[in-house]
Nucleic acid binder design. Structure first.
Length: 398
DNA sequence: TCTGGGGTCCTAGGACCC
DNA sequence: TCTGGGGTCCTAGGACCC
């Protein structure tokens, strides 16, 4: 039996959610009706557009571009800072509502879900009518709009929800692929980004249909193993399942862009202290231990490079993460001016015992207990309750 | 006042072992 | 003195997504 997959995508999610939240708290102006964007803070060099209203889009504002350039296109542009707690709340509300329709649901990102609706016709009736009903109910209940794509697999459902926006239902069933998908420019295909599309255009493959009918040998010459995968996708073929469980993270990372380029090692190390606390807290919350620690550096020319270390014994304390990050900086930093620093943890294990290495110094057991006690305090009273002494800025001249 | 942050997956190349 | 190949693990970098 053919599968029936829904892909539900919130229209301009971050901006819509912010608008709805403000209206709920007494604001009368709806951000969705004026040129507005969600954007960072230029003073700290986070000045890019991360979401935009439809009127802003009509003025040619794209994601992600600099706020500077966006303001040139629209001098009166309203810029609102991101508020992730708000996004999380509305994302959860939507997810809980969608769970009413199937247990077979996958959260694909903060604003997208896949629903496997195969065989639900007896329960809910015609899938297309159901999609319209869901779309309207979401609007009534929560105040924001969604697009719903319906297809026989996840890839096509996702492509369909991307067709015309906002507040629309589209189908892209197997027998509609030629007519609805093959005419689209190659850039529209999922997983074809800037680099791939440039190569494809260069060999005169301009539409998804061109790629669907392309020579496999030529594709493999340019894209190696992913060449045949590209052709498969262009043909709308995708066997992947809707994964109802929440997939565990493969990595946990945090990054900070500095307000100015860092040339002093101690300044970089200071950020490592903050980052170690962040990733360490998240790691322990998952109950993980990490076997690989990676530092990420981006220099003033926007080149990113990294160094990593694989450990014999998985770790989970801030101190251990911090210490390794410092070592990696010693080995890896090219002494160039640094714009962004990050720490990534990966290769997780859930074992809560430590494999004793012959050469490991015997550590006092209490260290981990202290860490857990600190996490609990932070959870209860906020993350500012405990900060490392070196993060406290010394006031000039005092 | 120029360019975020959090992820996943893939690949090339080197080290090392048999 | 010169000549291998295969397999695995690890590291660094890059493409892509939201």
């Amino acid at each position: 039996m053919d599968r029936i997959i829904f892909h539900i995508d919130v229209n301009n999610a971050f901006l819509s959610w912010t608008a709805v939240d403000r209206l709920k708290h007494g604001e009368t102006l709806d951000l969705r009706t004026i040129p507005s964007v969600i954007g960072g803070d230029e003073a700290t060099r986070n000045g890019i557009v991360i979401a935009k209203s439809t009127p802003a889009k009509k003025l040619g504002i794209v994601t992600p571009e600099t706020l500077y350039s966006a303001r040139r296109k629209c001098p009166g542009l309203v810029v609102v800072r991101p508020t992730h707690e708000v996004y999380k709340k509305y994302s959860n509300d939507l997810y809980e509502y969608l769970c009413n329709f199937t247990p077979n649901i996958e959260r694909f990102s903060i604003d997208e879900c896949f629903l496997d609706m195969t065989g639900t016709k007896n329960l809910f009736g015609d899938p297309i009518e159901l999609a319209y009903k869901i779309k309207e109910e979401v609007k009534d209940k929560f105040g924001f709009t969604v697009n719903i794509g319906i297809a026989n697999n996840k890839l096509c459902a996702k492509m369909a929800s991307d067709f015309e926006k906002p507040d629309k239902v589209h189908t892209l069933f197997d027998n509609e692929i030629k007519e609805k998908m093959w005419l689209l420019p190659i850039e529209e295909l999922f997983m074809v980004g800037k680099k791939s599309s440039a190569i494809l255009r260069n060999i005169n493959i301009n539409t998804i249909g061109d790629l669907a009918n392309a020579d496999q040998a030529i594709q493999e010459r340019y894209f190696k193993n992913s060449g045949s995968l590209l052709i498969t996708r262009a043909n709308g073929i995708d066997d992947s399942e809707v994964e109802e469980y929440v997939a565990k993270n493969q990595s946990i990372s945090n990054e900070i862009t500095s307000a100015y380029d860092l040339t002093n090692k101690n300044e970089i190390i200071k950020l490592f202290l903050q980052l170690s606390n962040q990733v360490g807290t998240r790691l322990r919350k998952e109950g993980f231990h990490a076997r690989v620690v990676t530092i990420i550096l981006k220099n003033s020319s926007f080149q990113t490079y990294s160094h990593q270390q694989k450990l014999v014994n998985p770790i989970d304390t801030n101190e251990e993460i911090y210490k390794i990050a410092k070592d990696l900086l010693e080995k890896g930093w090219k002494n160039d001016p640094i714009r962004l620093v990050g720490i990534r943890l990966s290769n997780f294990s859930v074992e809560n015992y430590k494999q004793m290495s012959l050469f490991d110094e015997v550590k006092p057991i209490s260290n981990e207990n202290i860490q857990k006690a600190m996490d609990n305090l932070k959870e209860k009273y906020g993350s500012n309750i405990i900060i490392n002494a070196s993060l406290l800025e010394k006031k000039e001249g005092k």
